[in-house]
Simulated assay, not measured.
Amino acid sequence: DPHTFEAGAKVSQTVSSARLVVQNGLGYDSYMNKIEAATPSSARKVIVVQHLLGLPDSTANPHLWYDPGTVPKVARAVADDLSRLAPAHAAVFSANLARFTASLQPWLEAIASARAAYAGTPVATTEPVAAYLIEAMGLDDLTPFVFQADVMNGVDPSPQDVTTEKALLTGNRVKAFVYNEQVTDSLTQSLATLSHGHDVPVVGVYETMPTPGYHYQTWMVAEVRSIVRALADHVSTTHL
């Protein structure tokens, strides 16, 4: 679980020797701050995505890489910093940035197509892993955010919130149930079982990139297609 990850000696050594570091912020990877503070370097450039986007510390959902508006900005910042670190190769970094930006187009087109077809469609979730993507697709997440936040933070949701979530699945109120496939517990597993039992398609999304066979772009396209498959064909996808 990335939320509880603790960096070991190998990670610390890698970060301490890096000239460019990209980190999420919003408390998601706070261990990076500790490593950087322990190994200060005036030559190291650090991109904190939270700060790049101008997000306050109170931002509730830290899963910024699921927001289609985030990645192009991060890529631009990476290219700019690499050009400052190695100006002789600036043209290469610029060309790579253009190539990477173009490679995001199939994902953006898949999102736009889904939004055109399914905007306003109600879904339920366990936690806000893919919330930015769900929002970009125009879907209506009916799960109370307090429930999502509790699951994300490893806190037992209140009985009232659990009852509310179950009612979404048993009352034919949602068209898909989306859960974090990589971090489950007895509650999320029981909700998935409940969904299957009430003919609600189940979609597993991933907090970190599934391997082997994926890179970021194909991973994100696969997530969109899994959700669309649930809405269009009533088919569950629990594993990529």
Rank of each mutant, 00 (worst) to 15 (best):
A117L: 14
E207R: 03
E6S: 15
M152H: 06
I47M: 06
S226I: 09
E6I: 11
T126S: 09
V123M: 03
Q148W: 10
V15R: 00
A79D: 00
M152W: 07
A222V: 08
L240H: 09
H196W: 15
L82A: 01
F145T: 02
W65A: 02
T70V: 03
R99H: 12
P40M: 07
G69H: 03
F145P: 04
V22L: 06
D57V: 15
H198Y: 08
H234K: 15
V202N: 01
S16D: 10
L55F: 14
T121E: 12
T14S: 15
P201W: 04
D141C: 05
D1I: 09
V146F: 08
M220N: 01
M152V: 03
P210H: 06
T70A: 02
P157V: 02
T237A: 15
N153L: 13
D80R: 08
T208K: 14
Q13I: 13
G154T: 09
G120E: 06
S236R: 05
Y206R: 06
V235R: 15
R19V: 12
S236M: 14
L139D: 00
T163E: 13
S41A: 08
A79F: 00
R99Y: 10
E109G: 11
Q160I: 13
G54D: 09
V162R: 05
H51P: 08
S113W: 01
T4Y: 12
V221P: 01
S12N: 07
V228F: 05
Q160V: 14
H215G: 11
L97Q: 01
V46W: 02
M32C: 13
E6L: 11
S186Q: 14
T193S: 11
P157S: 08
P201C: 10
T101S: 09
P157F: 10
R225F: 05
Y66F: 06
K34W: 09
P72L: 07
A230S: 12
T237I: 13
P106F: 02
H215V: 13
T237S: 09
L168F: 04
T39L: 06
V92T: 15
E36V: 14
Q217Y: 10
L26S: 02
T170H: 05
A9F: 07
A222W: 02
V146R: 11
R225N: 15
R76E: 04
F147L: 03
D161M: 02
F145D: 09
P159E: 07
